[in-house]
Design a protein around this nucleic acid. Sequence first.
DNA 1: GTCTATATAGCGATAGAC
DNA 2: GTCTATCGCTATATAGAC
Lengths: 218, 218
Amino acid sequence: MDDARWQDECVAESENTATTSTSSTMTSTEQRIWDAAIELFGRRGFAATGIRDIAREAGITVATLYHYMTSKEELLCRVMVDAMNVQLTAARPAETRYSDPRERIKHLVRQHVSFHCRFGLVARVTDSELRSLNDGARHQVVALRDEYEAIWQRTLEYGREQGIFDIGDLKLTTRAVLGTCTSVYAWYRPDGPLSVDQISDEYCAIVLRQCVVHGTSS
Amino acid sequence: MDDARWQDECVAESENTATTSTSSTMTSTEQRIWDAAIELFGRRGFAATGIRDIAREAGITVATLYHYMTSKEELLCRVMVDAMNVQLTAARPAETRYSDPRERIKHLVRQHVSFHCRFGLVARVTDSELRSLNDGARHQVVALRDEYEAIWQRTLEYGREQGIFDIGDLKLTTRAVLGTCTSVYAWYRPDGPLSVDQISDEYCAIVLRQCVVHGTSS
DNA sequence: GTCTATATAGCGATAGAC
DNA sequence: GTCTATCGCTATATAGAC
């Protein structure tokens, strides 16, 4: 179970002030359902995952599963909202803690890459299952994602105002930088040659080169 | 039908020597099945798309659909193999046509971004439905993807040998650069403010900054 | 080559006993 | 809170007429 208790771990690493609504008050059964959902939604996709699969993976019956949720889709929604909240909580200190835009973007990259390496299954769910949500739930998750993207965009804009960053189209560059960092989950394997820290460092360097005016990087 | 006849268009733009096995000999019905599969697999995902959906979208019955294919999965496999072949055909001239590594990588970026903008649904399928294939079919597609990635990696390595590119870990950088360019399909909309050419230019600039040693870009 | 009709299996979700 | 059993429906795929 690779992603067990990822909420606590990640929040603890970045900032120990906030935890997500679901993580702290979970019973053992709830946790096993949570882990099973992330494992299966992440590996096979939401549509390819059956209610029976989740129940089997969690070691309970289908009827018991329905005692803890109202529908498969609601379970997906909770996973995605929780994951976005964790990433938001990890990202926010970038703006309050650092005044140097280079340090701000490095904080964002480090958190994002680290999250996408260590919790790749959750990341895959939040990044590719928006289409599986109904309108209401999707708007809820999209609002969180927009808030997260806005932090990155403000950071790039701030760096440009300071004369430190040199970027073309702001929105395009924001998405390009985010895309660069997100894609790590598609190839990272825990048993690969590079540690998460090494990978994060490399991505920080790559993103700084994308943004910083020539001659002033790091 | 956004992706109609995307095979011919894209190949024609990049190199008119080769076309993919399926594109040139398609009847009208085959083409409508092809388009329907891409539309639905791309928009809803393979697992969430039913045989009935494809038949309805193509304007035929389920039984007729099975006259043209042996299974839903085989249809997916054909779409993915074809798309990878188109991208390979578009990428290969980078190495034969240009000796400057900057021109090589710009060719690759331009083709990749352009493909992912104009045929975003196909791109989404090839980039996210590997898990829906059985072992044999997946190995076939992965082999093509590896061949495609190898062109990018050779280009970066070549630029480094020439003293033009300055990159850290070769494999990581290859994937980061590819990830940067791939992510465009997640946000591009035909009715957005930027044209495909403008977006391609911006991505070329971003990737060059990622790679080229300071002071020698473009 | 296209159809109607159907086989067979699995789906999401629920009823109701304990 | 967890179970067994099942409802109602949809899934992929096929049979066989025309």
